[in-house]
Design a protein around this nucleic acid. Sequence first.
RNA 1: GGGGGUGUAGCUCAGUUGGUUAGAGCACGUGCCUGUCACGCACGGGGCCGAGGGUUCGAGUCCCUUCACUCCCGCCA
Length: 594
Amino acid sequence: MTSYRTHKCNELNLTHKGNKIILSGWINKKRDHGNLLFLDLRDNYGLTQCVIDKSNSIFKEIEKIPLETVVKIEGKVVERSKETINLNISTGEIEVSINTFEILGSTKELPMPIFSDQEYAEEIRLKYRFLDLRRKKIHQNIILRSKIISFIRSEMEKLGFLEFQTPILTSSSPEGARDFLVPSRLNPGKFYALPQAPQQFKQLIMVSGFDKYFQIAPCFRDEDARADRSPGEFYQLDVEMSFVEQEDVFDVFEKLFLKVFTKFSNKKILQNKFPKITYSDSMLKYGTDKPDLRNPLVISDLTEIFHRGDVKFDIFKKLVKEGSLVRCLITKNTKDKPRSFFDKIDNWAKEQGSSGLAYFTIEKSDKLTGKGPVGKFFSEDSIVEIMKLAKAEVGDTVFLSCGKKNEIQKILNMARVKLAEELDLIDNNCFSFCWIVDYPMFEKDEETKKIKFSHNPFSMPQGDIKNLDFTNPLSMKAYQYDIVCNGVELSSGAIRNHIPELMYKLFEIAGYSKSNVDEKFSGMINALSYGAPPHGGLAPGIDRIVMLLANEKNIREVTMFPMNQNAQDLMMNAPSNVSEEQLKELNLSIKKKN
RNA sequence: GGGGGUGUAGCUCAGUUGGUUAGAGCACGUGCCUGUCACGCACGGGGCCGAGGGUUCGAGUCCCUUCACUCCCGCCA
């Protein structure tokens, strides 16, 4: 109890009948009957209906107060008559008969209504975020976020993990995303970088002997935004453990995710033990390394079919001869779909920048035939073979894409999602997790043709560490893994390479000399030379976990003060110009742009 | 860096093949109304039709340029 309130706006019920009380909050809604006024008062906790009529001398005055004004109300708790009970709110059995009121905070005309479920332009929402956050749905999302983080923190502590903070001003590293740089005043011409993740620090914590670490860690990456990716900054549940193998890490996180997702959602979790899919399988079957396993559609490779003499699909055959692949998606029992359905998919594929999707439906009268624009190119024998390879049946439709591996993976990944949406195949009432494992250690940069780390340079390669074969680096796999839920990449992680000689060797393959490594990763490489334990970890994105649990499609809906797509904070006006003095102090000058 | 969508009253939106004075709901203002909970009724104020240029007798509508917001590709070890 304070001088502002004796109760909160969700608290009053019949047990308070007759009590004199004080409430403070925002005027959510008024219903003015002329001689009788209902006023819904709102605070963080709930709503209370207050009522006043013309017999009170302040009636005319209170009638005029605009919505969203902050007021203090003194009055008496009154039982509502049976017909006027409102079961939608916790205080619906009573109302407060207003005695006096005081305006605590007045309001200008609102740029956006608070009491409404309408959607609003992003620009207004972000500029007036403090108003947007008063709205019920997003207010609840932010509270949910707080509860989830708090729950995770206590679960991690129960599991014996210690929470540590790591530096925000650190050094730029050559791998990974674009860094945010911070000029150093005391070291003119030099820059700090904001951490893309506390990757090196958490490994150093392991070398320091702390055994189990976690942190709700801010991460900064200067890359372009997406619906599920905030520009600039986001939070990870950063975790690292000593003396563990991949399965030990999986064990901890499967338990944690099951607990978190059961506690904060009613949706069904499809697997208690998350399936493991190798990276190469995932790229073949789903065209992506973050497959949505709620989607039953699977990609199959049909390239071999186009070497057959009894297949007359000459355009594809020519491309296959030149090294292209053909892969397909099968939709079950779509023989009766109208022509417009198939045209729509084909047009959509063309809009995505592909050459479209060829398709035919498998039919059977006295023999098997392909119905549709390209059906006539396939003999009965070849259709039998396709049915075998793609697990297709009579009545199913085969959608074909031909091209370079990267291209068809991309388009079939998108087509898989598009077809599932069109056919309504995805059950939105469940969560489907999986691990993606066995990432390649290296990959070839298509532009520079050079070999680079495909994921994380600190990952441990698979195989007999003492006798690793470095002659074919592109075939090396790493103990590197991702966890995916409903097609959202929640995190990546790895068992780390804690052996300095091996680290130098791997960096050499990626084009870094020993002295280069010593300079760029000095903290890490030096530490590994003084008795480093085997260790590994994971770092799930907090924002994305909350997004899934709040059933939101955009990360701004679970972020309190997000930036817009151009990485601007419209409310605080960031980024902004700075004074000449500030620049001078930092030894910086701004190049004029013409 | 590239592609798509959107931009009309404070907010959400409608606005026909180019044709009089650009509309509705909510919000705001005035009046009526004592049981509403999306209260109701009547009246009213409020518009550089994102900005600039062009075509035309005439542009919210057609063309060009540009800006803002957003979604996607690239990028994100």
